[in-house]
Design a protein around this nucleic acid. Structure first.
Lengths: 219, 219
DNA sequence: AGTTGTGAAACGTTTCACAGCT
DNA sequence: AGCTGTGAAACGTTTCACAACT
């Protein structure tokens, strides 16, 4: 049972590009804080995030007034506010499906933990991978997936399976109650309403670059 | 009244989200083609790409009339047109900077080659990695980077170095003439005008999911 | 009958510009 | 003097709706 007497929940809808920018501001601010800076102006944040000062102020003012006119924003306070806005004031348990090269590389990625995400399970169909340890987590058989989701209650699944297996993997984690999925398989997936799927697709990123190169010569 | 007597070169600007969708259509069409389908309607493409039929038609009609009314689009023709639009009718040489877990995983990713991208060089500072082979390409010392870019003339660099080293790596490849960069390091980079940098950032993707989960319960 | 291609409307995001604090 | 917060304008993208075509 939750108690909201102290902190009323924000009920605003933010567009995805905004969320991405906020995430970028947060990452820069964390480094800026370590360097010992106490305040930052919208202009400085804009330069770091590749946007404009007006955009930064619009993005932040959407959630309230965090800055001091004439001074800028208090770095530590802004970090705390952004963490709360992005839902990073709790830790998020995550399962990784697929312990191949990408799955294994991700499992060993430090940033997972430092950004509030805990890998609570890694699954693979290949018996030779089951039982191996990756960064302190033992790879389990894929048949354990549904049971583990029920007991460990991760909210996010990261799919690192081959393209052919991705839709089936998605269906399984969704069936087990997961509603947020990060897909590293190079296939576009169909998910039911209410399930958020984000795709990280090498081919698409490279194609965006190829397009940029093809058309840069003009202008 | 427009004058079409002398056709000026087509200088269309496409927004990035459009390029991403086109890339997605292409990927789906390739699979659809393999399944033996000869035509596809905008509605079918929309379902696969997670968008609407009107959007699909707008996206495609931007470049000309590819469809047949009452019938749909010829799958093979549309694949060819999309490849041309995206600049995938040539092959793109690519260098990978950093042969750690992510760099190595990417180097072995098959989709690179099948989508028109050739890995022509992989570089690392760690002597124990230099000389090892990844998918037919030998890892070379990072000091060879500039010389190799000059001789092999890759147009795209993929950065898979640690965050602290990413800006320096970017500066080096840009200095050597690269103008399109895919950054896997978890840092936001500053690039000069005319250089396109795309970032693939696990933390950001997870934060977008965390935000979605935090705010889904309402509405 | 079915589906494309496309102006026009609706919608959303970004930029501008300046009032209002510190 | 400096920088934020924000209404209003500008801009861009998506959706609508229907004429045109096979």
């Amino acid at each position: 049972m939750k108690d909201f007497t102290s902190t009323p929940p924000p009920v605003k809808h933010i567009a995805e590009p905004t969320v991405r920018r906020l995430s970028g501001y947060l990452r820069f601010l964390e480094a800026f804080d370590v360097e010992g800076h106490e305040t930052i102006s919208s202009g400085e944040l804009a330069r770091a995030g590749g946007t404009t000062s007006a955009q930064v102020r619009k993005d932040l003012s959407f959630f309230g007034s965090f800055g001091k006119r004439g001074l800028g924003y208090a770095v530590k306070d802004l970090i705390a506010s952004l963490r709360e806005i992005l839902g990073l004031d709790t830790r998020w348990p995550v399962v990784i499906v697929g312990a191949g090269k990408i799955g294994a590389a991700l499992a060993q990625y430090r940033g997972f933990g430092t950004h509030g995400f805990d890998v609570v399970g890694i699954y693979d169909t290949d018996p030779s991978r089951v039982g191996t340890r990756l960064n302190g987590v033992t790879v389990r058989a894929d048949r354990d997936l549904e049971g583990d989701i029920a007991t460990l209650t991760p909210r996010i699944a990261v799919l690192c399976v081959p393209g052919e297996a991705a839709q089936a993997a998605l269906d399984r984690v969704v069936g087990a109650g997961i509603r947020a999925v990060l897909n590293f398989a190079p296939t576009s997936l169909v998910a039911p309403e209410g399930v958020t799927v984000r795709a990280v697709n090498m081919a698409t990123e490279l194609e965006v670059l190829a397009y940029a190169l093809t058309n840069e010569s003009r202008d």
